[in-house]
């Protein structure tokens, strides 16, 4: 069995939005401890990992199931959540559906078809990073918007103790520099200078679910995947994005 009650449907909507930006389908691995999902995007450039511990739910009861979901359909349903709605997720094993129930002034129920998406057994690779930066999401997203004006990819750099977001187009350049004492920076754990280049659209998708005051943990090295991690509504979201390299 699986039944979970979430006090704010809107918070869960953010989690689904974050995943559906990058993935078409997902397999929620539910167990008595909570919900986990790990998947790569179709081009294997990005990895999404989510962990929603049972403590994040108002009520939670489950044994082990793999629940395969079409994210586009789930996202559309979650878009129908109203501000004060509670969300109930419930597996109907007989009909092979996931019931998605909004409880507000009325009780509205959707029965979502399950897909045969097997769990990937994918792990977030245990990469050691020389640099770890905790930064306000709003500040990082703003820097990406600046970069977006000049090119479709962006370099994330650590240089001389500063965190730099740099883009160079055929004609124009943009640069945002964060020093350690910036109000936007919570902490910088700097080991060495580094530089990796990334597709901007993916970075924007990965950070879309974060509110501007949320804290992003960004791990970077040289020509290494970037790891971006944040929490929303008691859930942990981790993204990995492969770099672009000089060819």
């Amino acid at each position: 069995m699986f039944k979970a009650v979430i006090s704010e449907a809107k918070e869960f909507k953010k989690i689904i939005d974050a995943a559906s930006n990058l993935l078409d389908e997902i397999c929620f691995e539910v167990s008595e401890d909570g919900i986990k999902a790990r998947a790569m995007d179709p081009s294997h450039v990005a990895l999404v990992s989510m962990d929603i511990p049972k403590e994040a739910f108002e009520e939670y009861e489950a044994d082990v199931h793999d629940i395969g979901i079409d994210l586009e359909a789930f996202k559309k349903i979650m878009n129908r959540a109203k501000a004060k709605d509670k969300l109930i997720l419930e597996l109907d094993e007989e009909k092979n559906k996931l019931n998605v129930i909004f409880k507000g002034t009325a009780r509205r129920k959707f029965a979502l078809a399950l897909y045969d998406v097997s769990s990937s057994n994918l792990q977030v690779p245990d990469i050691e990073y020389p640099n770890e930066i905790l930064i306000k999401a709003g500040a990082f997203v703003d820097a990406l918007k600046d970069a977006d004006l000049v090119n479709d990819h962006v370099a994330l750099k650590v240089d001389d103790g500063k965190f730099i977001i740099y883009a160079k187009g055929d004609l124009n350049e943009s640069e945002t520099i964060f020093e350690e004492d910036s109000e936007d920076i919570i902490s910088m754990n700097i080991g060495e200078n580094a530089r990796s280049t990334f597709n901007l659209e993916y970075l924007k998708d990965m950070t879309k679910a974060a509110s501007s005051d949320d804290i992003l943990k960004i791990c970077i090295g040289t020509d290494m995947p970037v790891k971006i991690e944040y929490d929303i509504g008691g859930a942990n979201l981790t993204f990995l994005l492969a770099p672009r390299i000089e060819s």
Binding site: V45, P125, A242, E246, S247
Partner: peptide, 12 residues
Amino acid sequence: KTKQLTLEAFFK
């Protein structure tokens, strides 16, 4: 010119 790597290159 840059080229996009996939994550497989980093899974070992």
